[in-house]
C-alpha cells in the first residue's frame, strides 16, 4: 500500500516531466520547411535521384548517346525506349516512362558514354500519367535553349 502510494507520486512526477518537455517544444521554433515559400537548400539535393535526363554533349542540344541499347537491356522496369537514328549513332528517339522507373541507376551505371544521369528535380508533379512519359531528347533541347537565352 505504502509502496503503491510512493510509486504513484513518482509516476505523477514523471507526468510533470513529460509536460515540461512538450511545453518547452511548444515555445521552440517549428522545423517545417514551408514549401513553396521556402525550399530546402540545393546542397542537400546534389545527389538526389530525380527523373533521368540526358547529358548535353554541346550547347545546341546534342546528346552523348550512341544508341547502344545497354541502358534498355539493363533496366529492370523496361522504362526506356531508344531508337537509333538514320544517320550516325545518335538516337532518333529517347523515351523514358517515369511511371515504371525505380531509380535504381542500372542504366546510368551501364552507359558506356555516360550519356544519362539523374536530375535533381524534387518538385516534379504531374496531373496525368502521360505527363510522366518523357521525351528526353526534347527535354535536352529545351534545356539547351533555356541555357542559351
Amino acid at each position: 500500500m505504502f509502496r503503491a502510494i510512493v510509486d504513484n507520486i513518482k509516476g505523477l512526477w514523471s507526468l510533470i516531466v513529460g509536460l515540461s518537455i512538450t511545453g518547452r517544444f511548444f515555445f521552440s521554433p517549428v522545423k517545417t520547411v514551408h514549401y513553396p515559400r521556402q525550399v530546402v537548400d540545393p546542397e542537400s539535393l546534389a545527389s538526389y535521384r530525380g527523373p533521368l535526363e540526358l547529358v548535353p554533349a554541346d550547347d545546341v542540344g546534342g546528346s552523348k548517346c550512341v544508341s547502344c541499347q545497354m541502358c534498355v537491356r539493363a533496366c529492370p522496369g523496361n522504362c526506356l525506349t531508344v531508337i537509333k537514328g538514320k544517320e550516325g549513332k545518335a538516337p532518333e528517339t529517347y523515351l523514358y516512362d517515369f511511371t515504371l522507373c525505380c531509380l535504381c541507376a542500372a542504366c546510368v551505371e551501364s552507359c558506356p558514354t555516360s550519356a544519362i544521369r539523374f536530375s535533381h528535380n524534387v518538385y516534379l508533379t504531374a496531373r496525368t500519367r502521360e505527363e510522366l512519359h518523357m521525351d528526353l531528347l526534347a527535354d535536352l533541347k529545351a534545356r539547351a535553349a533555356k541555357a542559351s537565352q
Binding site: 542537400s44 546534389a46 545527389s47 538526389y48 525505380c102 531509380l103
Partner: peptide, 24 residues
C-alpha cells in the same frame, strides 16, 4: 534520410549496394 540521401540518392527505397561494393 538527409545523410543517407547523399550516398544513396534516395530517401526511402534505397538501392545502394552493388555486387562487389557500393554505388557511391
Amino acid at each position: 534520410n538527409d545523410i543517407l540521401q547523399i550516398i544513396t540518392g534516395s530517401r526511402l527505397t534505397i538501392s545502394y549496394f552493388r555486387f562487389g561494393g557500393v554505388s557511391a
